[in-house]
Simulated scan of single mutants.
Amino acid sequence: MAINTGDMDVAVIGGGVIGLTSAIALAEDGHRVRVVSRDAVDGTTSAVAGGLCWPYRIRPYERAVQWSVRSFHALTALAQRPEETGARMVTGTMTDTTHGGGDDARQCPGDRPDDDLAAWYDAVPGLRRASAEELPEGHAAGWRARTPLVDMPAHLRYLERRLTAAGGTVERHEVTSPAEAGRTADVVVNCSGLGARELVPDPDVHPVQGQLVIVDNPGIEEWYVSADAGSAETTYVLPQPYGVVLGGTARENVWSREPDPAVAEAIVARCARRFPELAGARIRAHKVGLRPARPAVRLAVERLPDGTPCVHNYGHGGAGVTVSWGCADEVLRSVRALREGAGPLGR
């Protein structure tokens, strides 16, 4: 298919946070954009996410931090209108129980001057090392920061409204391949998340199961996370308008979406060790999400069999909202390059 020299018809596959931010960037740049999604926003993996803006379980590290910094600033601006956007600025503590060692530890706080997240630490205003008095027993290091914390269901609805206001549309149906979506488009943007495993197909895409519990808020105002990157168990407490999100798990290649009662009990117990008042909080809901993981995010352009360009943007693991706007910027740059006839192609 020949590329138009003017604004283009773009089909975006996927209606989660990655797909919607990519679609908004394109629509606000003047392109004709339609999002194709099997699920309504409340049924996407993004809707289950805790919503803390912080790089987690995502590679490559250097690019992920760049994307995260861009998203941090975008979400900070949106947090000026929390009721509209679902984004708020909330202070909290990120701790590390391992404190160094191994490649995966690079996603957690540490003292190494070559830490891969150094640019992230520098970019977050007011971020500082937690004092010993501010850390729970058994934690060797940590950070105190004020970061965006996003009510994801509300945020996704805001993104849909913003897309519509920019002239974009959303269609609710399933596609079987990028080529199918590209039959009536100049460019396809593939933000299918875990679905890319079958849609592309890409066998490197796999789930990292996350289970969480939502409870009534007994008065907690700050977020708290203790998440060793290589562990199947994490501890996080995220106060949201609809209750406190307690987590969690990070189980590689587990496909079940059914909450496990024993796991839920363990999650509450871990969180209650940090905030004892959570032990008696009324449980409002149990949820399970499948993070769309990959050895590295795939953000690249390739040609479909009929020649239509496809910008792949998937494999963001546990950092979808954290990198969403940064990745959307790259998608926009790729589409602009294609329009100008200089689009890079890669795998």
Score class of each variant (00 low, 15 high):
residue 231 S to Q: 15
residue 330 E to K: 04
residue 219 G to S: 12
residue 196 A to Q: 03
residue 275 F to D: 03
residue 256 S to G: 04
residue 180 E to V: 00
residue 223 W to K: 02
residue 262 A to Q: 14
residue 36 V to P: 01
residue 238 L to H: 07
residue 95 T to H: 03
residue 125 P to K: 08
residue 115 D to H: 15
residue 208 V to A: 15
residue 27 A to K: 00
residue 196 A to C: 11
residue 157 R to N: 10
residue 33 V to Q: 02
residue 216 D to A: 15
residue 343 G to P: 00
residue 189 V to S: 12
residue 261 P to G: 11
residue 226 S to Q: 10
residue 99 H to D: 15
residue 42 D to G: 09
residue 160 E to Q: 15
residue 136 P to T: 04
residue 58 I to C: 10
residue 114 D to Q: 06
residue 236 Y to Q: 09
residue 81 R to F: 11
residue 267 I to C: 02
residue 336 R to K: 10
residue 129 R to I: 05
residue 269 A to N: 10
residue 127 L to S: 09
residue 133 E to T: 14
residue 313 N to I: 02
residue 215 V to N: 02
residue 88 R to K: 11
residue 67 W to R: 06
residue 101 G to H: 06
residue 116 D to N: 06
residue 137 E to C: 08
residue 171 E to V: 13
residue 74 A to Y: 02
residue 161 R to F: 01
residue 333 R to V: 01
residue 12 V to D: 01
residue 307 G to T: 08
residue 22 S to A: 15
residue 34 R to S: 04
residue 81 R to P: 00
residue 108 C to V: 12
residue 204 D to Y: 07
residue 72 F to C: 10
residue 157 R to I: 00
residue 345 L to D: 12
residue 229 A to Y: 09
residue 293 A to I: 06
residue 223 W to N: 01
residue 39 D to H: 13
residue 255 W to P: 04
residue 64 A to P: 04
residue 259 P to R: 00
residue 129 R to F: 09
residue 223 W to L: 04
residue 13 I to G: 00
residue 158 Y to D: 01
residue 106 R to K: 14
residue 325 W to A: 08
residue 292 P to S: 08
residue 31 H to Y: 10
residue 222 E to I: 03
residue 324 S to D: 13
residue 44 T to A: 06
residue 255 W to R: 12
residue 83 E to W: 10
residue 94 M to H: 09
residue 272 A to L: 04
residue 69 V to I: 15
residue 315 G to D: 00
residue 102 G to Q: 13
residue 82 P to H: 11
residue 91 T to M: 08
residue 267 I to G: 00
residue 334 S to D: 15
residue 174 E to F: 11
residue 36 V to Q: 03
residue 253 N to S: 14
residue 206 H to P: 01
residue 248 G to I: 14
residue 72 F to Q: 08
residue 43 G to S: 10
residue 191 C to P: 01
residue 345 L to R: 08
residue 143 W to L: 15
residue 293 A to C: 12
residue 188 V to H: 07
residue 100 G to Q: 11
residue 46 S to W: 01
residue 326 G to W: 05
residue 148 P to D: 08
residue 87 A to Y: 00
residue 258 E to H: 14
residue 234 T to D: 04
residue 216 D to M: 13
residue 195 G to P: 02
residue 130 A to Y: 02
residue 85 T to E: 08
residue 163 L to G: 05
residue 39 D to Q: 14
residue 231 S to A: 15
residue 6 G to S: 14
residue 302 E to Q: 12
residue 60 P to G: 05
residue 279 A to L: 11
residue 286 H to E: 09
residue 174 E to Y: 10
residue 226 S to Y: 08
residue 102 G to D: 12
residue 62 E to C: 07
residue 205 V to F: 11
residue 186 D to I: 08
residue 90 V to P: 00
residue 27 A to C: 02
residue 288 V to A: 06
residue 270 R to S: 13
residue 60 P to T: 02
residue 143 W to Y: 11
residue 264 A to P: 00
residue 281 A to H: 03
residue 114 D to C: 01
